[in-house]
Every structure is written in structure tokens, then in C-alpha cells.
Design a protein around this nucleic acid. Sequence first.
DNA 1: CCACTTTTTGACCAATTGGTAAAGCTACGA
DNA 2: TCGTAGCTTTACCAATTGGTCAAAAAGTGG
Lengths: 203, 203
Amino acid sequence: MPDGTSKKPSRIQMRNRSLILDAALDVFSAHGYRGATLDQIAEAAGLSKPNILYYFTGKEEIHVTLLNQLMETWLDPLVEMDAAGDPLTELLDYVQRKLDMSRDLPRESRLFAGEILQGAPRMLPHLRADLKPLLNEKCAVIQTWMNDGKLAQVDPRHLVFSIWATTQHYADFDTQVRVLLDDDPHDSAAQFLDQMYRSLLTP
Amino acid sequence: MPDGTSKKPSRIQMRNRSLILDAALDVFSAHGYRGATLDQIAEAAGLSKPNILYYFTGKEEIHVTLLNQLMETWLDPLVEMDAAGDPLTELLDYVQRKLDMSRDLPRESRLFAGEILQGAPRMLPHLRADLKPLLNEKCAVIQTWMNDGKLAQVDPRHLVFSIWATTQHYADFDTQVRVLLDDDPHDSAAQFLDQMYRSLLTP
DNA sequence: CCACTTTTTGACCAATTGGTAAAGCTACGA
DNA sequence: TCGTAGCTTTACCAATTGGTCAAAAAGTGG
């Protein structure tokens, strides 16, 4: 077993751990935690099941590792929103970054959605410790912008919720969107969302 | 086994079938299809597992039955949108009806979300047969409204997607919303969404 | 009260699944 | 070349889970 306390993971450890995590992201995002099996993950990774359990102590640790890695990526677009920038531009850019993430990282979006949908059994601490303070900070910034008359007055929290909802929708409900739309939704969605938030936020 | 071809389901059949479906809705919406077990459903329904299988041929049939029942309820708010009514009022009322559904039927919302999230393995036919034509019809109505200058010009499909996303978000991501918000979100969400779609759609 | 149908249950199964143990293989430095 | 630490596999469990079956129990009409 690779010693968690030792300093340097070998090259083969790095490769196999990332093979496993990538395969697990496929499987967990497609079938949910309970719906995913170690055999599926093993096959997708091109490794045997016991070999998987040589690198991770169990199914749960794989899932938790994915969730932990995800949290960083997930918060990043919001972190980038700059209090010193132009308010409307900052918010519209944030919307576009989130929409791009739905296109580029749909597995991550669905993994996150599935976790929250089931009550966030393994993510609640992260939500409280990481997401909540960040949201509070950014909502305060948005509120300042509104008080300065740079943006129309709306509830900053519901504004952010709506941005999350509308952008992640294109990853999480991709199956439905594809049934209902004939062409690729990304460009038309980008245009629609820009129009919607521009009309809402322009003072 | 209750004969599916016979004419009249007995009183006790009606009662137990609905007990089972209600319990199954709890369990499936909380844990997903694969995460739910017949034992959980049986316990929640207050019946034994073999007794459950006396009324339904298997786990899948219970799930499919729930999904079929759900489709009606789900489309209803959109069906009610009246081409003869006042355009802005009709759309804003639709938003409120969907938001009310998220508050009143969160289990149904999560069941639907979970099914779509996993690629809609049992719902794709319904989406194509029921949802798609209805959406096309209603989008045509909205387009007419816009052409008549009653509404601002936006992409009707993405408009509807955004309504679904923002309203269902309060049911599907309830756990997250509750962590981030201290008071009940419903009234403030209703106000925010009214403001957002009013500013977007007012010509 | 009795025959007959519907409902319920306890005992049981086969398949799946997360996980283990120990032997075998491989890379690599001395 | 050899020894050793790291990596991989084969064979195997024990628990869970969807589902079956025959018999018991409860309704029900006459």
C-alpha cells in the first residue's frame, strides 16, 4: 500500500491515481455514488479491482477525493470576480465563465449536482466552510456596487443562485436540452444569458 | 397477483399501491434509483418486501410508474399558459407556478432531476413524445407574442430553460440553498424572479 | 358457518458488490 | 546478478439486494 505519510509518490502512483480518479469521475457522474461500482471504475481505468484498492482505501475515499478536488475548481470563477473591476462587466463575465465550465467540465457539474441532490452527505462541511464565506464576501461586493448605483437593486444571493442554476442547467440537464434543441446550445445560451442579466442589472 | 387485466382494483389494492408509491417517491428522490432498496421502500410503506412485489412486478415498475405519473404533473403549469391571455402576465404567472411546485412537490422535482441527470434512461421517450411537442407549441406562442411587440425579443427556448432552471433549483439544490440562506427562500425568490423576468421581457 | 378468493408472510436463492489475503511479478539500485 | 520494495493479480469472502414460492391468514359472498 502506498504510504500516505511518505514524501514522494512514485511516477507510477501519480499515473494510476489519476487514471482511477478520471475513470471514477466518469462513472460517479453518470450513475451517482451508489449506482457506481468498483468494477465499472476498474474497467474504465484499465486496472483490476484489487489494484484500485491498492491506491485507495475504498469506494468512499475515491468519491471524497473527487469532491475535494472539485471544490477548488468550482469556486474559482466566483473567486475571480474582482471588486475593483467594472460591476456589470464583472458579473456578465462571471456568467460566461460558469457557462463555459458547464460545457468544458460537464462531468464535474453532474458529480456536484448529484451530491447536492442527495442532501450533500459528503459535501456539507465544504459548503459551510468554503462556499458560504465566499458567497457572503462576493454578495457584499455586489451590494456595494448596487449601493453605488452601478447596478440595479436586486437580491444578490438570489442573483447568484440564478446564475448557478441557469448555467449549470446546460450540463446537468444536458440530456433534456439535447432532446429539445437541435443545434448546439452553447452559443445561443451565452447570448440569451448575456441579454437576461444585462437587462436585469443595468441600472 | 392483482390481475392487471381485470376491471376493478379492490379498495385494499388502491390503498396499498398508493402507500407503496408514496414511500417509493420518498426513497427514490432521496437516494436515486440505484441507491434505493426495496427494503427501504417496504419499511417506509409499512409493508413487507414480498408484499410490495405482490403489487408491483419489480423495482423498475415502481420507478416507471412514478415517472409516468410525474410527467402529467410536470407539464401542467406549462399547459396552463394561455395564448389568449396577457403575454407578460402569462409568463410571470408561469414562473410563479413553477416556483410553487418546487416548494410543494420537492420530491417530484428531485426524482425528475435525478432521472435526467443520469441520462433519462427511462424518460427519454416521454421527453420526446410529450415534452418536446408541448415546448414547441408554447415557444411558437411566445414567438407570436414577441412578433406582436408584446414582449421583448429573446430566444423562447432558452427563456423556458432558464425558468425551469431557476425555479427547480430551489427544490433540487435545497440543501445548498439552506446552507447559504438563513431564512426561507420562497418569498424572496418569488420577488427576485418576478423582477428578473419582468425586466427581461418588458418590451 | 363455509368455501373460495385475495392478501400477507417467512424462508429461501442467486447475483452483485465492496473488500481481503497472499502469492507472484516487476523495476531498480547495489 | 541479485535482493528488495513496490506493484499486480488470482482466488476468495461476507453482506446486501432483487426476487421467488408455498403456505398461512384474512376477507368475502352465499
